[in-house]
């Protein structure tokens, strides 16, 4: 009887653990956005982003003409952006040094990612909010 109980308990515990792992897998699944999706999210919009490495927030307006207006800690800079056919968005604030990155969606949240040495995506920026139009110029 005790042996049967132990087996049942073990079975229940294993299934709970497995279910937890599955839920975790589902939660962690991320999808790389296409160029059209990135275009919809960024172009003509002001985007609030949070740098996961530095902990700093910034606001960037992606003007449809290719200009990028950014504010970090109340200081503004003007650069440019470009969208690659594979969905990578390139930002250039220091001339000659564009940085191109993929955008992924995980759950309901969007991230900017880089590929680490093993080819895995490492999240570097979390996007907090997207708002239509230029919210920075009116200030």
């Amino acid at each position: 009887m005790t042996e049967t109980l132990r087996t049942v308990l073990l079975l229940v515990m294993s299934s709970v653990l497995l279910a937890g792992c599955n839920a975790n897998l589902v939660r962690q699944e991320s999808r790389v956005l296409s160029a059209a999706e990135v275009n919809r999210l960024f172009v003509g919009n002001t985007v609030e982003s949070y740098n996961l490495n530095t902990g700093f927030n910034s606001f960037t307006y992606y003007h449809p003409n290719g200009q990028a207006l950014q504010e970090r800690l109340w200081t503004r800079r003007i650069g440019s952006w470009q969208l690659k056919p594979d969905g990578q968005i390139c930002l250039e604030f220091v001339k000659g040094k564009p940085r191109c990155r993929h955008i992924v969606q995980q759950g309901g949240t969007y991230y900017k990612v880089i590929q680490d040495k093993s080819g895995e995506h490492e999240q570097i920026v979390r996007y907090r909010y997207f708002r239509q139009g230029d919210a920075l110029s009116g200030l």
């Binding site: 530095t54 902990g55 700093f56 970090r72 800690l73 109340w74």
Partner: peptide
């Protein structure tokens, strides 16, 4: 004095 460079350096140090 509240430039990006100065404020971000201070905050980075604190964090």
């Amino acid at each position: 004095s509240a430039s990006y460079k100065k404020v971000s350096a201070l905050v980075r140090e604190l964090r």
